[in-house]
């Protein structure tokens, strides 16, 4: 802290002059952020306009909140919001605790070689592309010759077209996500567990605590800051269910359940070329995310003294 105050005594201009080399380092990267990320923000105004390509962003007429009103009163509003929220709440409820459980279980394996091997295997699915993951779902869940339906048939059941049933879409989505990401997402908890003082476990053992008690009284409290941080980020992404996977898993039969905000933005915008309408939905979505993130962060800071910013 002292250092900072000392530096602050210098005038801004002299500091800029002193740091000119560091500024040179930043030139291209910062230019990238301006050109690729900040300039498009100027285009967000088309959400309040009726975009006409020939007139450009600036010349198109203002329509105020018309695009937003249209979305809120559109027949797609409710299903799209509902589908998005269903997926994200299930993700927080079911997918989110999985890596925590996996990290704890792995840390309890006495043979470090074994746990290391298991860990390495659990990472693999993370590196598979979404296209391949989706096609694997089609392969294994195929009603004609998929492994899962073969098992169902073996036990005398009727084959189910899992990917065509709207009410099963969320489970396909969530469970395949757990399969793909649990191992990878466990890394952060594994490293947090490794940072816990081993003396705590020794002391607990002397006091006669068993493994369950150690999980409850040592592991979970030790993980709490990490869990809170990840939870805040997860809640901040509630409306941000990835476009790719939902889009690739969509088919005509499951569309009622699989159309989410991001896929709707894509279809309305790029396939139907309703630019302004799509931009308005996008902006609405983005603002909700920010509001959620900031409020969850506030809440977390108030309750547990941990926040991401």
């Amino acid at each position: 802290m002292e250092k900072v105050t000392k530096v602050k005594k210098r005038s801004f201009v002299s500091r800029v002059a002193r740091d000119w080399q560091l500024i040179v380092f930043c030139l291209v990267p910062i230019a990238y952020f301006f050109i690729i990320h900040y300039v498009p923000m100027y285009g967000v105004q088309i959400a309040f306009k009726e975009f006409v390509p020939s007139k450009g962003i600036w010349g198109s007429p203002w329509v105020g909140f018309e695009q937003f009103r249209r979305f809120f009163s559109s027949y797609m509003f409710k299903p799209v919001i509902k589908n998005t929220l269903t997926l994200s709440f299930l993700q927080i409820l079911i997918s989110f605790p999985m890596p925590i459980i996996m990290a704890i279980l792995l840390s309890k394996v006495p043979n470090k070689r074994c746990s290391k091997f298991a860990q390495t295997v659990f990472y693999i699915p993370h590196f598979i592309s979404i296209v391949v993951l989706t096609s694997m779902l089609y392969i294994f869940l195929s009603p004609r010759n998929g492994v899962v339906n073969n098992i169902i048939r073996f036990f005398g059941g009727e084959p189910i077209f899992f990917l065509g049933e709207p009410h099963l879409f969320k489970w396909n989505f969530i469970l395949s996500g757990i399969w793909q990401n649990t191992g990878w997402n466990a890394i952060i908890y594994i490293s947090a567990l490794a940072a816990i003082d081993p003396a705590l476990y020794e002391a607990a053992k002397v006091d006669g605590a068993n493994q369950w008690k150690m999980i409850w009284h040592i592991d979970l409290p030790g993980l709490l800051p990490t869990i809170m941080m990840m939870l805040i980020l997860a809640v901040g992404r509630v409306m941000n269910i990835g476009f790719q996977k939902a889009y690739l898993m969509q088919n005509t039969q499951n569309l009622v359940a699989s159309e989410i905000i991001s896929t709707y933005i894509y279809k309305v915008g790029l396939l139907d070329t309703q630019y302004s309408y799509s931009a308005a939905i996008n902006l609405f979505n983005n603002l909700i995310n920010i509001i959620l993130l900031v409020s969850v962060n506030r809440m977390s800071k108030a309750i547990t003294k941990h926040g991401v910013f």
Binding site: V16, D19, Y38, V39, P40, M41, I57, A279, I290
Partner: peptide, 28 residues
């Protein structure tokens, strides 16, 4: 000690939370 350390960090972090979005980026 870098004079722009804080401003540049904020500048890049901001893009994580707020983006122009699909269509404005597409047009650009």
């Amino acid at each position: 000690e870098f004079v722009f350390q804080k401003p540049f960090t904020v500048l890049i972090m901001f893009t994580v939370y707020f983006q122009g979005g699909l269509i404005p980026t597409y047009i650009w």
